[in-house]
Design a protein around this nucleic acid. Structure first.
Lengths: 252, 252
DNA sequence: CGTCACTTTGAGTTTAGTCAAGCAGAGTGG
DNA sequence: CCACTCTGCTTGACTAAACTCAAAGTGACG
Protein backbone atom coordinates (compact mmCIF):
# COMPACT_ATOMS: atom_id res chain seq x y z
CA UNK A 1 0.00 0.00 0.00
CA UNK A 2 1.23 3.49 -0.83
CA UNK A 3 -1.39 5.62 0.82
CA UNK A 4 0.38 8.88 0.18
CA UNK A 5 0.51 8.77 -3.59
CA UNK A 6 -2.22 10.49 -5.55
CA UNK A 7 -2.50 9.12 -9.04
CA UNK A 8 -0.85 11.36 -11.62
CA UNK A 9 -2.89 11.93 -14.73
CA UNK A 10 -0.49 12.41 -17.59
CA UNK A 11 -1.05 13.02 -21.24
CA UNK A 12 0.87 9.88 -21.91
CA UNK A 13 -1.48 7.66 -19.95
CA UNK A 14 -4.50 9.28 -21.56
CA UNK A 15 -3.20 8.87 -25.03
CA UNK A 16 -1.94 5.41 -24.50
CA UNK A 17 -5.18 3.96 -23.18
CA UNK A 18 -7.68 5.88 -25.28
CA UNK A 19 -10.71 3.75 -26.00
CA UNK A 20 -14.21 4.83 -26.83
CA UNK A 21 -17.29 4.73 -24.60
CA UNK A 22 -19.12 3.52 -27.67
CA UNK A 23 -17.03 0.35 -27.55
CA UNK A 24 -17.09 -0.05 -23.77
CA UNK A 25 -18.71 -3.11 -22.28
CA UNK A 26 -19.82 -1.05 -19.30
CA UNK A 27 -21.80 1.34 -21.47
CA UNK A 28 -25.13 0.16 -20.13
CA UNK A 29 -24.00 0.74 -16.53
CA UNK A 30 -22.45 4.19 -17.02
CA UNK A 31 -24.44 5.82 -19.76
CA UNK A 32 -28.04 6.43 -20.75
CA UNK A 33 -29.53 4.10 -23.30
CA UNK A 34 -30.51 5.37 -26.72
CA UNK A 35 -27.78 7.85 -27.47
CA UNK A 36 -27.21 8.44 -31.17
CA UNK A 37 -23.85 7.70 -32.75
CA UNK A 38 -23.25 11.42 -32.98
CA UNK A 39 -23.96 11.94 -29.28
CA UNK A 40 -21.76 8.99 -28.40
CA UNK A 41 -18.91 10.54 -30.37
CA UNK A 42 -19.26 13.82 -28.50
CA UNK A 43 -19.02 11.93 -25.25
CA UNK A 44 -15.94 10.08 -26.40
CA UNK A 45 -14.16 13.35 -27.03
CA UNK A 46 -14.58 14.68 -23.51
CA UNK A 47 -13.80 11.56 -21.52
CA UNK A 48 -10.27 10.60 -20.58
CA UNK A 49 -10.33 6.87 -20.68
CA UNK A 50 -8.57 4.08 -18.84
CA UNK A 51 -6.55 5.92 -16.27
CA UNK A 52 -4.75 3.34 -14.12
CA UNK A 53 -4.90 3.62 -10.32
CA UNK A 54 -2.80 1.22 -8.29
CA UNK A 55 -3.95 -0.54 -5.17
CA UNK A 56 -3.71 1.75 -2.17
CA UNK A 57 -3.58 4.94 -4.21
CA UNK A 58 -5.98 7.81 -3.66
CA UNK A 59 -8.05 8.78 -6.68
CA UNK A 60 -8.86 11.95 -4.75
CA UNK A 61 -8.83 13.14 -1.16
CA UNK A 62 -11.25 15.11 0.96
CA UNK A 63 -10.37 18.76 0.43
CA UNK A 64 -9.01 18.33 -3.11
CA UNK A 65 -10.47 20.79 -5.59
CA UNK A 66 -13.17 19.22 -7.72
CA UNK A 67 -12.69 18.97 -11.45
CA UNK A 68 -13.96 15.60 -12.57
CA UNK A 69 -16.20 12.71 -11.84
CA UNK A 70 -14.74 9.25 -12.31
CA UNK A 71 -16.35 6.15 -13.75
CA UNK A 72 -14.77 2.91 -12.60
CA UNK A 73 -13.83 0.70 -15.51
CA UNK A 74 -12.20 -2.10 -13.61
CA UNK A 75 -11.39 -2.67 -9.97
CA UNK A 76 -12.76 -1.78 -6.62
CA UNK A 77 -12.72 1.43 -4.57
CA UNK A 78 -13.77 2.54 -1.13
CA UNK A 79 -14.86 6.06 -0.24
CA UNK A 80 -14.56 7.34 3.29
CA UNK A 81 -14.90 10.41 5.41
CA UNK A 82 -12.52 10.89 8.32
CA UNK A 83 -13.41 12.96 11.37
CA UNK A 84 -10.87 15.27 12.96
CA UNK A 85 -10.09 12.82 15.74
CA UNK A 86 -9.29 10.15 13.19
CA UNK A 87 -12.45 8.10 13.22
CA UNK A 88 -12.98 6.75 9.73
CA UNK A 89 -16.36 6.04 8.25
CA UNK A 90 -16.36 4.08 5.01
CA UNK A 91 -19.32 5.49 3.07
CA UNK A 92 -19.30 3.00 0.24
CA UNK A 93 -17.55 0.38 -1.83
CA UNK A 94 -17.66 1.04 -5.57
CA UNK A 95 -17.16 -1.35 -8.45
CA UNK A 96 -17.03 -1.22 -12.23
CA UNK A 97 -19.61 0.94 -13.94
CA UNK A 98 -20.16 3.09 -10.87
CA UNK A 99 -19.48 6.80 -10.67
CA UNK A 100 -17.56 8.47 -7.84
CA UNK A 101 -17.03 12.08 -6.91
CA UNK A 102 -20.67 13.20 -6.94
CA UNK A 103 -20.38 14.56 -3.40
CA UNK A 104 -17.86 17.15 -4.61
CA UNK A 105 -20.21 19.01 -6.94
CA UNK A 106 -21.90 20.95 -4.16
CA UNK A 107 -18.82 22.67 -2.75
CA UNK A 108 -16.40 22.15 -5.66
CA UNK A 109 -14.22 20.36 -3.13
CA UNK A 110 -14.11 16.62 -2.59
CA UNK A 111 -15.89 15.66 0.63
CA UNK A 112 -14.42 12.18 0.96
CA UNK A 113 -11.37 10.13 0.09
CA UNK A 114 -11.51 7.58 -2.71
CA UNK A 115 -8.97 4.78 -2.37
CA UNK A 116 -8.35 1.88 -4.74
CA UNK A 117 -8.69 -1.50 -3.02
CA UNK A 118 -7.01 -3.21 -5.95
CA UNK A 119 -5.37 -2.13 -9.19
CA UNK A 120 -8.05 -0.22 -11.08
CA UNK A 121 -8.77 1.68 -14.24
CA UNK A 122 -11.04 4.69 -14.26
CA UNK A 123 -12.42 7.08 -16.85
CA UNK A 124 -12.22 10.77 -16.03
CA UNK A 125 -15.27 12.89 -16.81
CA UNK A 126 -14.37 16.58 -16.57
CA UNK A 127 -17.37 18.10 -14.89
CA UNK A 128 -17.46 21.37 -16.79
CA UNK A 129 -17.68 19.40 -20.02
CA UNK A 130 -20.36 17.12 -18.61
CA UNK A 131 -22.29 20.21 -17.66
CA UNK A 132 -22.22 21.75 -21.11
CA UNK A 133 -22.71 18.49 -22.97
CA UNK A 134 -25.71 17.59 -20.83
CA UNK A 135 -27.40 20.77 -22.00
CA UNK A 136 -27.05 19.56 -25.59
CA UNK A 137 -28.08 15.98 -24.84
CA UNK A 138 -31.25 15.87 -22.73
CA UNK A 139 -30.89 12.15 -22.09
CA UNK A 140 -27.48 12.78 -20.60
CA UNK A 141 -28.76 15.49 -18.27
CA UNK A 142 -31.53 13.23 -17.06
CA UNK A 143 -29.06 10.40 -16.67
CA UNK A 144 -26.89 12.40 -14.30
CA UNK A 145 -29.91 13.51 -12.31
CA UNK A 146 -30.86 9.86 -12.02
CA UNK A 147 -27.39 8.70 -11.04
CA UNK A 148 -27.27 11.26 -8.25
CA UNK A 149 -30.76 10.39 -7.14
CA UNK A 150 -29.82 6.70 -7.02
CA UNK A 151 -26.92 7.58 -4.76
CA UNK A 152 -29.33 9.37 -2.42
CA UNK A 153 -31.60 6.32 -2.33
CA UNK A 154 -28.62 4.07 -1.65
CA UNK A 155 -27.54 6.29 1.22
CA UNK A 156 -31.04 6.11 2.69
CA UNK A 157 -30.73 2.33 2.63
CA UNK A 158 -27.44 2.54 4.50
CA UNK A 159 -29.08 4.80 7.08
CA UNK A 160 -31.79 2.19 7.58
CA UNK A 161 -29.10 -0.42 8.02
CA UNK A 162 -27.06 1.64 10.47
CA UNK A 163 -30.04 2.93 12.38
CA UNK A 164 -32.16 -0.17 12.72
CA UNK A 165 -30.32 -3.40 12.11
CA UNK A 166 -28.34 -5.69 14.37
CA UNK A 167 -24.91 -7.03 13.52
CA UNK A 168 -26.08 -10.23 11.82
CA UNK A 169 -28.60 -8.36 9.71
CA UNK A 170 -26.00 -5.82 8.67
CA UNK A 171 -23.56 -8.49 7.56
CA UNK A 172 -26.28 -10.39 5.74
CA UNK A 173 -27.36 -7.21 3.93
CA UNK A 174 -23.77 -6.52 3.03
CA UNK A 175 -23.12 -9.98 1.60
CA UNK A 176 -26.35 -10.00 -0.39
CA UNK A 177 -25.66 -6.56 -1.75
CA UNK A 178 -22.18 -7.57 -2.91
CA UNK A 179 -23.54 -10.76 -4.39
CA UNK A 180 -26.18 -8.93 -6.40
CA UNK A 181 -23.83 -6.30 -7.71
CA UNK A 182 -21.26 -8.89 -8.73
CA UNK A 183 -23.94 -10.98 -10.42
CA UNK A 184 -25.10 -7.90 -12.37
CA UNK A 185 -21.56 -7.73 -13.77
CA UNK A 186 -21.47 -11.34 -14.81
CA UNK A 187 -19.53 -12.68 -11.83
CA UNK A 188 -20.64 -15.47 -9.53
CA UNK A 189 -23.35 -14.51 -7.07
CA UNK A 190 -22.29 -17.14 -4.55
CA UNK A 191 -18.51 -17.11 -4.49
CA UNK A 192 -16.31 -14.05 -4.36
CA UNK A 193 -13.16 -12.54 -3.01
CA UNK A 194 -13.53 -9.66 -0.56
CA UNK A 195 -11.37 -6.75 -1.57
CA UNK A 196 -11.66 -4.98 1.77
CA UNK A 197 -10.44 -5.84 5.26
CA UNK A 198 -12.68 -6.76 8.18
CA UNK A 199 -12.00 -3.35 9.58
CA UNK A 200 -13.24 -1.63 6.42
CA UNK A 201 -16.37 -3.78 6.39
CA UNK A 202 -16.90 -2.89 10.03
CA UNK A 203 -16.45 0.79 9.38
CA UNK A 204 -19.01 0.66 6.60
CA UNK A 205 -21.49 -1.29 8.72
CA UNK A 206 -20.95 0.59 11.96
CA UNK A 207 -19.32 -2.41 13.68
CA UNK A 208 -15.90 -3.20 15.09
CA UNK A 209 -13.68 -5.57 13.17
CA UNK A 210 -13.95 -8.20 15.93
CA UNK A 211 -17.71 -8.17 15.58
CA UNK A 212 -17.43 -8.62 11.82
CA UNK A 213 -15.05 -11.51 12.31
CA UNK A 214 -17.21 -13.18 14.97
CA UNK A 215 -20.36 -12.77 12.92
CA UNK A 216 -18.76 -14.28 9.82
CA UNK A 217 -17.54 -17.18 11.97
CA UNK A 218 -21.04 -17.64 13.30
CA UNK A 219 -22.51 -17.65 9.79
CA UNK A 220 -19.98 -20.32 8.90
CA UNK A 221 -20.80 -22.38 11.99
CA UNK A 222 -24.49 -22.13 11.06
CA UNK A 223 -23.77 -23.40 7.56
CA UNK A 224 -24.78 -20.20 5.81
CA UNK A 225 -21.42 -19.42 4.28
CA UNK A 226 -17.87 -20.60 4.15
CA UNK A 227 -15.10 -18.17 4.88
CA UNK A 228 -11.49 -18.74 4.03
CA UNK A 229 -9.61 -15.56 4.60
CA UNK A 230 -11.13 -13.18 2.07
CA UNK A 231 -12.77 -15.86 -0.03
CA UNK A 232 -16.48 -16.11 0.67
CA UNK A 233 -18.95 -18.74 -0.51
CA UNK A 234 -22.63 -18.14 0.10
CA UNK A 235 -23.73 -21.69 0.82
CA UNK A 236 -27.33 -21.03 1.80
CA UNK A 237 -28.37 -17.83 0.11
CA UNK A 238 -32.08 -18.19 0.95
CA UNK A 239 -31.25 -18.52 4.65
CA UNK A 240 -29.07 -15.43 4.48
CA UNK A 241 -31.91 -13.53 2.87
CA UNK A 242 -34.23 -14.77 5.59
CA UNK A 243 -32.02 -13.02 8.15
CA UNK A 244 -33.06 -9.83 6.43
CA UNK A 245 -36.77 -10.49 6.27
CA UNK A 246 -38.53 -7.24 6.60
CA UNK A 247 -35.52 -5.05 6.08
CA UNK A 248 -36.42 -4.38 2.43
CA UNK A 249 -33.79 -3.89 -0.22
CA UNK A 250 -31.69 -1.72 2.08
CA UNK A 251 -28.59 -0.40 0.38
CA UNK A 252 -28.78 -0.77 -3.38
CA UNK B 1 -52.86 13.60 12.98
CA UNK B 2 -54.48 12.37 9.80
CA UNK B 3 -51.85 10.09 8.43
CA UNK B 4 -53.98 8.74 5.64
CA UNK B 5 -54.71 11.95 3.81
CA UNK B 6 -52.49 12.89 0.89
CA UNK B 7 -52.67 16.57 0.14
CA UNK B 8 -54.89 17.37 -2.84
CA UNK B 9 -53.41 19.81 -5.29
CA UNK B 10 -56.24 21.73 -6.84
CA UNK B 11 -56.31 24.50 -9.37
CA UNK B 12 -58.06 26.62 -6.82
CA UNK B 13 -55.26 26.38 -4.31
CA UNK B 14 -52.69 27.11 -6.97
CA UNK B 15 -54.49 30.12 -8.28
CA UNK B 16 -55.37 31.45 -4.89
CA UNK B 17 -51.87 31.40 -3.47
CA UNK B 18 -49.90 32.29 -6.55
CA UNK B 19 -46.86 34.31 -5.65
CA UNK B 20 -43.64 34.73 -7.53
CA UNK B 21 -40.25 33.19 -6.76
CA UNK B 22 -38.85 36.56 -7.65
CA UNK B 23 -40.62 38.01 -4.62
CA UNK B 24 -39.92 35.09 -2.30
CA UNK B 25 -37.85 35.67 0.79
CA UNK B 26 -36.43 32.15 0.48
CA UNK B 27 -35.03 32.81 -2.97
CA UNK B 28 -31.45 32.64 -1.82
CA UNK B 29 -32.02 29.23 -0.22
CA UNK B 30 -33.92 27.61 -3.10
CA UNK B 31 -32.54 29.18 -6.22
CA UNK B 32 -29.23 29.98 -7.83
CA UNK B 33 -27.96 33.51 -7.48
CA UNK B 34 -27.68 35.75 -10.48
CA UNK B 35 -30.69 34.78 -12.53
CA UNK B 36 -31.89 37.49 -14.88
CA UNK B 37 -35.38 38.91 -14.58
CA UNK B 38 -36.33 37.02 -17.70
CA UNK B 39 -35.08 33.72 -16.29
CA UNK B 40 -36.85 34.41 -13.02
CA UNK B 41 -40.09 34.96 -14.90
CA UNK B 42 -39.74 31.64 -16.70
CA UNK B 43 -39.28 29.93 -13.36
CA UNK B 44 -42.35 31.64 -11.94
CA UNK B 45 -44.47 30.22 -14.73
CA UNK B 46 -43.60 26.59 -14.04
CA UNK B 47 -43.78 26.57 -10.25
CA UNK B 48 -47.02 26.01 -8.40
CA UNK B 49 -46.64 28.13 -5.36
CA UNK B 50 -47.84 27.99 -1.78
CA UNK B 51 -49.59 24.66 -1.62
CA UNK B 52 -50.78 24.11 1.96
CA UNK B 53 -50.05 20.82 3.71
CA UNK B 54 -51.57 20.24 7.12
CA UNK B 55 -49.79 18.72 10.08
CA UNK B 56 -49.76 14.94 9.79
CA UNK B 57 -50.48 14.89 6.06
CA UNK B 58 -48.30 13.07 3.60
CA UNK B 59 -46.83 15.22 0.87
CA UNK B 60 -46.00 11.95 -0.88
CA UNK B 61 -45.54 8.32 0.04
CA UNK B 62 -43.01 5.68 -0.87
CA UNK B 63 -44.28 4.07 -4.04
CA UNK B 64 -46.13 7.12 -5.35
CA UNK B 65 -45.32 7.98 -8.96
CA UNK B 66 -42.87 10.84 -9.22
CA UNK B 67 -43.91 14.04 -10.91
CA UNK B 68 -42.55 16.91 -8.89
CA UNK B 69 -39.98 18.09 -6.45
CA UNK B 70 -41.20 20.24 -3.58
CA UNK B 71 -39.59 23.28 -2.03
CA UNK B 72 -40.68 23.96 1.53
CA UNK B 73 -41.87 27.51 1.98
CA UNK B 74 -42.93 27.32 5.59
CA UNK B 75 -43.09 24.53 8.10
CA UNK B 76 -41.28 21.36 8.95
CA UNK B 77 -41.27 17.89 7.36
CA UNK B 78 -39.78 14.53 8.09
CA UNK B 79 -38.88 11.95 5.47
CA UNK B 80 -38.72 8.29 6.34
CA UNK B 81 -38.32 4.86 4.85
CA UNK B 82 -40.23 1.96 6.36
CA UNK B 83 -39.03 -1.62 6.14
CA UNK B 84 -41.47 -4.44 5.46
CA UNK B 85 -41.63 -5.46 9.09
CA UNK B 86 -42.57 -1.95 10.07
CA UNK B 87 -39.28 -0.58 11.29
CA UNK B 88 -39.19 3.10 10.50
CA UNK B 89 -36.04 5.02 9.75
CA UNK B 90 -36.38 8.78 9.66
CA UNK B 91 -33.93 9.88 6.98
CA UNK B 92 -34.17 13.61 7.56
CA UNK B 93 -35.99 16.62 8.92
CA UNK B 94 -36.53 19.37 6.36
CA UNK B 95 -37.30 23.03 6.90
CA UNK B 96 -38.04 26.10 4.80
CA UNK B 97 -35.95 26.59 1.70
CA UNK B 98 -35.10 22.88 1.44
CA UNK B 99 -36.05 20.62 -1.43
CA UNK B 100 -37.64 17.20 -1.01
CA UNK B 101 -38.33 14.41 -3.44
CA UNK B 102 -34.85 14.12 -4.97
CA UNK B 103 -34.71 10.42 -4.17
CA UNK B 104 -37.58 9.78 -6.58
CA UNK B 105 -35.81 10.90 -9.73
CA UNK B 106 -33.87 7.67 -10.15
CA UNK B 107 -36.82 5.30 -10.34
CA UNK B 108 -39.60 7.80 -11.07
CA UNK B 109 -41.21 6.50 -7.89
CA UNK B 110 -40.90 8.06 -4.47
CA UNK B 111 -38.56 6.05 -2.24
CA UNK B 112 -39.66 7.55 1.06
CA UNK B 113 -42.62 9.14 2.81
CA UNK B 114 -42.69 12.88 3.42
CA UNK B 115 -44.89 13.91 6.33
CA UNK B 116 -45.63 17.41 7.58
CA UNK B 117 -44.72 17.85 11.26
CA UNK B 118 -46.70 21.09 11.39
CA UNK B 119 -48.91 23.04 9.02
CA UNK B 120 -46.77 23.81 6.00
CA UNK B 121 -46.72 25.49 2.63
CA UNK B 122 -44.75 24.04 -0.25
CA UNK B 123 -44.01 25.02 -3.83
CA UNK B 124 -44.39 22.31 -6.42
CA UNK B 125 -41.69 22.04 -9.09
CA UNK B 126 -42.88 19.76 -11.91
CA UNK B 127 -39.78 17.79 -12.74
CA UNK B 128 -40.28 17.59 -16.50
CA UNK B 129 -40.40 21.39 -16.60
CA UNK B 130 -37.36 21.68 -14.37
CA UNK B 131 -35.57 19.38 -16.75
CA UNK B 132 -36.31 21.40 -19.86
CA UNK B 133 -35.85 24.77 -18.18
CA UNK B 134 -32.50 23.75 -16.77
CA UNK B 135 -31.28 23.14 -20.32
CA UNK B 136 -32.09 26.75 -21.17
CA UNK B 137 -30.65 28.17 -17.95
CA UNK B 138 -27.18 26.75 -17.24
CA UNK B 139 -27.12 28.22 -13.76
CA UNK B 140 -30.29 26.32 -12.94
CA UNK B 141 -28.90 23.02 -14.15
CA UNK B 142 -25.78 23.48 -12.07
CA UNK B 143 -27.90 24.49 -9.12
CA UNK B 144 -29.83 21.23 -9.17
CA UNK B 145 -26.65 19.23 -9.53
CA UNK B 146 -25.35 21.07 -6.49
CA UNK B 147 -28.51 20.59 -4.45
CA UNK B 148 -28.40 16.86 -5.09
CA UNK B 149 -24.72 16.71 -4.32
CA UNK B 150 -25.32 18.55 -1.05
CA UNK B 151 -27.88 15.94 -0.12
CA UNK B 152 -25.29 13.21 -0.75
CA UNK B 153 -22.79 15.00 1.48
CA UNK B 154 -25.42 15.42 4.18
CA UNK B 155 -26.19 11.70 4.02
CA UNK B 156 -22.50 10.88 4.40
CA UNK B 157 -22.50 12.98 7.55
CA UNK B 158 -25.45 11.03 8.90
CA UNK B 159 -23.62 7.79 8.14
CA UNK B 160 -20.64 9.03 10.13
CA UNK B 161 -23.00 9.88 12.96
CA UNK B 162 -24.78 6.53 12.88
CA UNK B 163 -21.67 4.48 12.35
CA UNK B 164 -19.26 6.09 14.76
CA UNK B 165 -20.87 8.23 17.40
CA UNK B 166 -22.26 7.44 20.84
CA UNK B 167 -25.66 8.59 22.04
CA UNK B 168 -24.51 11.85 23.61
CA UNK B 169 -22.53 12.80 20.54
CA UNK B 170 -25.47 12.05 18.28
CA UNK B 171 -27.82 14.22 20.30
CA UNK B 172 -25.28 17.01 20.48
CA UNK B 173 -24.79 16.88 16.72
CA UNK B 174 -28.52 16.92 16.22
CA UNK B 175 -29.08 19.95 18.45
CA UNK B 176 -26.22 21.89 16.90
CA UNK B 177 -27.43 21.07 13.42
CA UNK B 178 -30.94 22.29 14.20
CA UNK B 179 -29.56 25.40 15.86
CA UNK B 180 -27.44 26.29 12.83
CA UNK B 181 -30.20 25.74 10.33
CA UNK B 182 -32.67 27.78 12.35
CA UNK B 183 -30.12 30.55 12.77
CA UNK B 184 -29.57 30.61 8.99
CA UNK B 185 -33.28 31.35 8.67
CA UNK B 186 -33.22 34.20 11.14
CA UNK B 187 -34.53 32.28 14.15
CA UNK B 188 -32.83 32.00 17.50
CA UNK B 189 -29.84 29.68 17.56
CA UNK B 190 -30.25 28.92 21.26
CA UNK B 191 -33.96 28.52 21.89
CA UNK B 192 -36.38 26.54 19.76
CA UNK B 193 -39.37 24.29 19.73
CA UNK B 194 -38.87 20.72 18.58
CA UNK B 195 -41.43 19.77 15.98
CA UNK B 196 -40.77 16.04 16.24
CA UNK B 197 -41.29 13.49 19.00
CA UNK B 198 -38.55 11.77 20.96
CA UNK B 199 -39.31 8.67 18.98
CA UNK B 200 -38.73 10.47 15.66
CA UNK B 201 -35.49 11.96 16.93
CA UNK B 202 -34.46 8.49 18.06
CA UNK B 203 -35.32 6.98 14.71
CA UNK B 204 -33.24 9.58 12.93
CA UNK B 205 -30.29 9.12 15.29
CA UNK B 206 -30.47 5.33 15.52
CA UNK B 207 -31.51 5.41 19.19
CA UNK B 208 -34.59 4.36 21.13
CA UNK B 209 -36.88 7.07 22.45
CA UNK B 210 -35.95 6.28 26.06
CA UNK B 211 -32.30 6.87 25.25
CA UNK B 212 -33.13 10.22 23.67
CA UNK B 213 -35.14 11.20 26.72
CA UNK B 214 -32.47 10.10 29.17
CA UNK B 215 -29.73 11.85 27.25
CA UNK B 216 -31.66 15.11 27.10
CA UNK B 217 -32.25 14.81 30.84
CA UNK B 218 -28.55 14.27 31.38
CA UNK B 219 -27.67 17.31 29.26
CA UNK B 220 -30.07 19.30 31.42
CA UNK B 221 -28.60 17.93 34.63
CA UNK B 222 -25.14 18.88 33.34
CA UNK B 223 -26.31 22.42 32.67
CA UNK B 224 -25.85 22.21 28.92
CA UNK B 225 -29.48 22.76 27.99
CA UNK B 226 -32.89 23.21 29.48
CA UNK B 227 -35.70 21.01 28.29
CA UNK B 228 -39.33 21.70 28.90
CA UNK B 229 -41.33 19.30 26.86
CA UNK B 230 -40.49 20.25 23.28
CA UNK B 231 -38.98 23.62 24.14
CA UNK B 232 -35.20 23.51 24.11
CA UNK B 233 -32.74 26.15 25.28
CA UNK B 234 -29.09 25.64 24.51
CA UNK B 235 -27.58 27.09 27.67
CA UNK B 236 -23.95 26.22 27.06
CA UNK B 237 -23.46 25.96 23.33
CA UNK B 238 -19.64 25.79 23.49
CA UNK B 239 -19.86 22.82 25.85
CA UNK B 240 -22.29 21.07 23.54
CA UNK B 241 -19.91 21.63 20.66
CA UNK B 242 -17.11 20.23 22.76
CA UNK B 243 -19.00 16.95 23.03
CA UNK B 244 -18.54 16.72 19.29
CA UNK B 245 -14.85 17.53 19.18
CA UNK B 246 -13.33 15.62 16.39
CA UNK B 247 -16.55 14.56 14.78
CA UNK B 248 -16.33 17.30 12.14
CA UNK B 249 -19.40 19.00 10.78
CA UNK B 250 -21.28 15.72 10.57
CA UNK B 251 -24.71 16.14 9.04
CA UNK B 252 -25.06 19.52 7.38
C1' DC C 1 -62.38 17.11 32.64
C1' DG C 2 -61.19 12.87 30.65
C1' DT C 3 -58.55 10.76 27.19
C1' DC C 4 -54.64 9.88 24.68
C1' DA C 5 -50.27 10.44 23.08
C1' DC C 6 -45.96 11.55 24.59
C1' DT C 7 -42.39 11.61 28.07
C1' DT C 8 -39.70 10.40 32.04
C1' DT C 9 -37.40 7.29 35.05
C1' DG C 10 -36.04 2.86 37.04
C1' DA C 11 -34.41 -2.01 37.00
C1' DG C 12 -32.60 -5.63 34.62
C1' DT C 13 -30.90 -7.59 30.10
C1' DT C 14 -28.59 -7.88 25.81
C1' DT C 15 -25.54 -6.63 22.38
C1' DA C 16 -21.59 -5.13 20.73
C1' DG C 17 -17.30 -2.99 22.26
C1' DT C 18 -12.69 -3.34 24.59
C1' DC C 19 -8.59 -5.43 25.68
C1' DA C 20 -5.55 -9.08 25.10
C1' DA C 21 -3.31 -13.03 23.21
C1' DG C 22 -2.17 -15.89 19.61
C1' DC C 23 -2.46 -17.35 14.70
C1' DA C 24 -2.02 -17.09 9.54
C1' DG C 25 -0.43 -15.56 5.19
C1' DA C 26 2.04 -12.34 2.16
C1' DG C 27 5.97 -10.32 1.20
C1' DT C 28 11.11 -9.37 2.23
C1' DG C 29 15.69 -10.04 2.69
C1' DG C 30 19.48 -12.81 4.14
C1' DC D 1 14.73 -21.54 0.74
C1' DC D 2 13.95 -20.19 5.24
C1' DA D 3 13.34 -17.07 8.93
C1' DC D 4 11.32 -12.66 9.92
C1' DT D 5 8.19 -9.13 10.01
C1' DC D 6 3.96 -7.02 9.33
C1' DT D 7 -0.62 -6.77 8.68
C1' DG D 8 -4.83 -8.72 9.15
C1' DC D 9 -7.73 -12.20 11.39
C1' DT D 10 -9.69 -15.04 15.11
C1' DT D 11 -11.09 -16.06 19.66
C1' DG D 12 -11.77 -15.45 24.62
C1' DA D 13 -12.93 -12.91 28.84
C1' DC D 14 -14.73 -8.98 30.57
C1' DT D 15 -17.15 -4.33 30.29
C1' DA D 16 -19.98 -0.67 28.94
C1' DA D 17 -23.60 1.26 26.37
C1' DA D 18 -27.93 1.14 24.87
C1' DC D 19 -32.17 -1.63 24.74
C1' DT D 20 -36.36 -3.71 26.86
C1' DC D 21 -39.98 -3.79 29.85
C1' DA D 22 -42.62 -1.51 33.13
C1' DA D 23 -44.84 2.06 35.66
C1' DA D 24 -46.02 6.52 36.48
C1' DG D 25 -46.17 11.46 35.21
C1' DT D 26 -47.44 15.39 32.01
C1' DG D 27 -49.68 18.18 28.74
C1' DA D 28 -52.63 19.04 24.74
C1' DC D 29 -56.96 18.83 22.98
C1' DG D 30 -61.54 17.72 22.14
Amino acid sequence: MQPNVTVPITDVSLHHFKAACSACSLRELCLPLGLSQDEMNKLDTIINQRIPVKRGEYLFRAGDPFRSLYAIRTGFFKTCVVSEDGREQVTGFQMSGELIGLDAISTETHACDAIALEDCEVCELPFSKIESLSRDIPALQLHFYKVMSREIVRDQGVMLLLGNMRAEERLAAFLINLSQRLAARGFSAVGFHLRMTREEIGSYLGLKLETVSRTLSKFQADGLITVQNKQIELVDLPAIKRLLTGCQGAHS
